[in-house]
Write a protein that binds this DNA or RNA. Sequence first.
DNA 1: GTGACGACTTGGATTTCTCTCA
DNA 2: TGAGAGAAATCCAAGTCGTCAC
Length: 822
Amino acid sequence: MDSSSDDDVPLGQLMAGRKTAKPNAVVSSSSVAVSSSPSSSSKRSSSSKKRPNYKEDSDDDDEDFEYNDDYETSNGSKKKKIKMENGGSSSSNSKKKPKVEKKAAVKIEPNGNGKDPPKKSGVASPTTKPKKKTPIKKESAASGTSTSAAGAGATSKRGLKQMDKAERISHAMQAYLWWNANDPPAGCQWVKMEHAGVSFPEEYAPHGVKMLYDGKEVDLSPLEEEAATFFAAMDPDGMHLGNPKTAPIFIKNFMTDFKALLGKGHVIKDFDKCDFGPIRRHLEEQKIVKKAITDSERKQNKDVKNTAMFQFGYSLVDGHLEKVGNYNMEPPGAFRGRGEHPKMGKLKQRVAPEQVMINISECAPAPKCAVPGHAWGEVRHDPTVQWLCQWTENINNQNKYMQLAAQSSFKGKSDRSKYNKAAKLCGNIVKIRADYKKNLTSKSHETRQLATAMWVIDRLALRVGGEKDTDEEADTVGCCSLRVEHLKFDPNNEGDDNKEIELEFLGKDSMLFKQTIDFGSALYTENNGMGEQVYENFKSFCKKKKPSDDVFSDLTPTILNSHLKGIMEGLTAKVFRTYNASKTLQDELLKTEGTAGWKRLTASEKVVEYNNANREVAILCNHQRSVSKAQEATLDNLGAKLDKLKEQKKVLKKILKKITDGDESKIPTKKDPAKLVEKATKALEKAKSMKEKAKTKEEKIAATEADEKAKILKKEVADVKFNEAHLWDNVPKKDQVIKRIENWSEKIKKMELNIKHKDDNKEVSLGTSKLNYMDPRISVAFCKRNEVPIEKIFSKTMRDKFNWAMAVPPDWQFNEEVGKQG
DNA sequence: GTGACGACTTGGATTTCTCTCA
DNA sequence: TGAGAGAAATCCAAGTCGTCAC
């Protein structure tokens, strides 16, 4: 490759089409061509004749691919072959002299079977000739899952031409099946990596709205105004300022940093005299203005976002394009620590490029810093780590990283290894449980503590609970850091024989764990469960201790984990959560699949059963969520609707009685809402026209207000219609009424179920366990066994993340055999 | 043996997008 | 067709665990 051409073109610029890559160049590790470069049209003209299968629209600036022969995906489904090259046809590539030294050219080519060409050190070998078509490796039909299941759902329904640029890149990326490719050398995550660095937020643009102090306007510098705006942007009723416990912490920290920023002698001293109202109102106004956005403005915003994504959102790792996760630098703001975090409200500073370290391969060009006049703090070449950029945040002095996205090969590999490790536990769990059960009665205090903690981690799925500095962090605990005050013996005052303990503490993210464990119940005593012994141990560990003392005074996560490693290689406390979650899911699914009538259920009904199993796992792992105001409102609305339906059913029954009795007087009929409908329609039209004409802030606000008024009218129309939906324009016939009563009974039943479902799930978060704890292969096998489309279980992102799991057969089981795969 | 720290995973809140239903 | 609800994506805080220096 010509080093004067692409070698100095950072990846991001190529991706964003800022600098035109030389046509004819083979895609190399230092030049990816998913660009929309201005020269692409000329590029097209020279190569279009060689691509009979695809002709790009002349005005399509997304033309960066070659659509050549069909290829097949991992499962054998036919797809159009997409070749991503930075210009030129394959024939022109073949004429190009290869560059073989440091910067070996790497052709990104979805070869269908996901196997890289033979290579050393995991880097694709230089390519000079167009590749001979390789036979496509078909996966067994038993694997069954369609490509759509692996994340290319859009492709099965839409042709490549209908896809936008991001979708086409995503589609092309799916051709790389990392699980069939060679691994990088031991200890390395990659051999070659390049990327465009991190995208920085724009500099603060002052709005000039003045806050008040003691009733008077205060002049602030842009930096000071920005800080005041951070506070004004906080929701006064939100989780920080709306909570009487956390609001004083937040305010105190904010004021300390704010005053430090203002400097000594500044008029602002006392929070009680501060009035952020004007800024808050300005921000509200901005929101209203934003609502008046036109379709073209919306498209423009999306384009800007996409430009950043194409520039920064991809990385080239060992010749393969990978998605970057968090390519936007965290903007400054007020720190939003959870629970009663002692540092909440402190000002999170803006991160400058000089504070950022870049990690790329030695032979790759360092990305240009996109902020004028600035440069990266350091450029590193460390293939042993996954991160692409690193910086240190000022609140807790912790390192932060820009990494590849969840659907990348890095994350996929570690995910698969995590689940295989958990599966390995299947084969060791009997031995491990025997070990801790024996040790529960050990004479050694340390051994008993260790065994008790293992019991708790295994049976109650608690996290290990590392030590925390409560001056610096929120006071949350896990197993090893449980304190006596978190345990309440005999919480219901039931007497001496009682073996109940109420565990109440704040866990990760300050989520409340509150459960009464009956150690004497069959659940914990059957099959030598040793529940009663655990209870006795807790009693002895808490004896003669102060409430603030540690229950497990002789135990640390390090001791516990090193003991676990002695039993099974790689075993740590967190593996138990993965194991128990996956095992629970599998057991629950097999149980429900074994019930009578299972085969008669529809796919949607089977999904409900799957979600029920998922809920069991979420409850086990204590994955909670707080009920939002919107959710509360939804439930209230549904409740009101249900009441109305019931009321209407009563009316219908009365009508039926009247008709049966031959008394057709006073039978209510529908009122004509035409006038109201007309009023609402006119109001909507007016609002729409105002929105289109609005240029100034005031006009936009007026347009949004008009729009909201119109919506209220529309809602009134809907309410009127809903309230009279059970009636007729004229007096109905008897059979009409009977039919409608049946109809209403169905509606009521459906709505009651819906409300119950929503109510049951409102405080349980199903996503966390699905994303992090339940082996995806269990879900995939379930879908295949039961003809449930995988899309009903996994979103697009999840299907991409779990692409490695999609080929499992329907009878796949989470067991020790899987664990042997490592 | 232990504490600090780096690297990575886990997790709820928030924002944005998409679907459904009237 | 559009509003509202729900799902998905994004954000970034807060865990776990391995390694290393002392």
